[in-house]
Design a protein around this nucleic acid. Sequence first.
RNA 1: GGCUAGGUAGCUCAGAUGGUUAGAGCACGGGAUUCAUAACCCCGGGGUCGAGGGUUCGACUCCCUCCCUAGCCA
Length: 680
Amino acid sequence: MRRILVTSALPYANGPLHIGHVLEAVQTDIWVRFQRLAGHECLYVCADDTHGTPIMLKAQADGVTAEELIAGVGAEHRATYRDFLIHHDTFHSTHSAENRELTERIFRVLDGAGYIARRTIHQAYDAKAEMFLPDRYVKGTCPVCGTKDQYGDSCENCGATYTPADLIDPVSVVSGTRPIERESEHLFFTLAKFEAMLREWTRSGAIDGSVANKLDEWFKTGLRDWDISRDAPYFGFEIPGHPGKFFYVWLDAPVGYMAASLKLARDRGLDWDAWWGLGSTAELYHFIGKDILYFHTLFWPAVLTGAGFRRPTAVHAHGFLTVNGQKMSKSRGTFINGRHYLERLPPEPLRYYFAAKLAPGIDDIDMSLEDFVSRFNSDVVGKLVNIASRCAGFIVRGGGRLAAALPDPALYAEFAAARTRIAACYDGRDFGAAIREIAALADRANQYIDGHKPWNLAKDPARAADVLAVCTEGINLFRALMLYLAPVLPAMAENAARFLGRPFGHWDDAATPLLGTALEPYVPLATRLDPKLVATLFAPEGVASAAPVAPPEPAAKAPPPPAPAAATVAPAAEISIEEFGRLDLRVARIAAAELVEGADKLLKLTVDLGGETRTVFAGIRSAYAPEQLLGRHVVVVANLKARKMRFGLSEGMVLAASDGAGGLFLVAPDAGAAPGARVK
RNA sequence: GGCUAGGUAGCUCAGAUGGUUAGAGCACGGGAUUCAUAACCCCGGGGUCGAGGGUUCGACUCCCUCCCUAGCCA
């Protein structure tokens, strides 16, 4: 058994997560889930990156403290990760006691070992705002080509790099005044002292080849010392022994990996040193985007080494996410926030799509919405789920129990043998190859069923055993594939396991077919994505993201008010379990929602109960706008007598909680529940 | 500007060390079928492998130049 600690990059706490963040988290989560299924100990930690000038200024602009800002953003981040089925063992914060403790400890060791240098620098200073300005906070005219409105570090037009002092007519972005130049003593980490170690480490297998090529460039130009201090005012940790000086956010951010695992170790009584100590035999992996390679492959291993800790086993960088071939951009309308997605669609199709497109390299990944729909609908619903769907009925008619033997053990053996190759793909982060292999096997399974035509055999009562045998084979092929997809589609795999009557425990469960056991009733494991709904991913931000059900916006002015106490309502009269059982509650997806002319409390909803659609008039207009509801999963009373209203026939009821004070809250199932599923 | 990576059918992508007619899924056309969520099965059309030059008996695959895209430049 391997002992593995995994991290994904810390999202910056100045705004909500977008689906690019989700891509990285999904990649990491799939890898972690696979390792666990394969029997290894694998823990996944992450945290919010909460320090720095941008957060300080955003909090000021929003009229809140930085602590309030990051608390609000943190709540949104946690909820969004959770709803994409990302399982963090710990999701912590860099603004934490553990991180302060470790950052200070690392600094003291580095300083004591002579790795911290002091040097006076000249930096742009905003006299009005009384703060030093990072290069990006000074704008002006490019001194090389004369383009106006360029940042203080480089020109977007001609590509020239320079310092803010070189700009013509520089202006502080903070106050709009002309910055002056000021001296300040800064602390530097002597990176160059680690060159030999870094050259060796980057070629030790810790970095993929093409990425190591990129690092060569940095060695070629020579490693420079790294400025790790910033002057007050700054939101972060003050440097011990240097009043008014703060650790640069990029110093304490990766320490956040250690801090999150320290929190985990203390919560669960685990041995933190076994992960981070010099003699550690555990594996340590960082999943990151290619934009922050620099920090993770030079500074970070050097800081760890200088402070007496082990280095990462490997740093895995992925490319960027583009949407329909374009960079995600708010102005182009191609920017998709995580919540914006979740308000419309379930998480697993996106997990599947990302998996299908992920490879070990740093190539950018394009999310074509059309491809997204067809990939999921065709691969997962049309092919994979179809195998179970088309066999289940025959098994039920044959007694509900799988046959005692497989009619084609050789075919099953091929499926079982594929687990070694697919495991290698997962372990090597080539999820795309794993998905291709699984999809090809799903085709073989459908071909097998098509070749044996159980629906023809079923016409002859004498061949009932053959029908059962063919479908037992089919169900077992399905079971193997579902297990192979469990890291990608955890909720669907769990539902499939329930149908199969046996949980997936280990990757090698695929080696042995399931025979002679009873199946639970089949419920649809996935529904097709509606292209019209997917198209609304591009709806302008703000239309739906202001939904009251969304977690507090990052810019929350104040902590959310406590929910009014709703417990003062007396319980209704007692009922028996039988009486309760008469209620047919179902999960439903809201397929359409519209205002009702002449009714100021009602919305007309079209709900999908997994094959059947109904019209329901719901009195929730005061709390929800129609566009907020599209795609949401709710619970409806499916056997409520239809009621004729002035506006039409209402064929059910949508469940919502109310607090007596006008508050209205729709009841929703956890992620993964499919429309039509019975609630009980 | 420098560096790293990418540019393969309408779309999204596979193609180890150069070697018979360049592959898949989706989309499209035809056929078959009705067990399955208008799913599945069979057949087919469709690409001068970014452009130009070079090395080679032979290049999508190696070399050079150029064009386009993305990221990084502490």
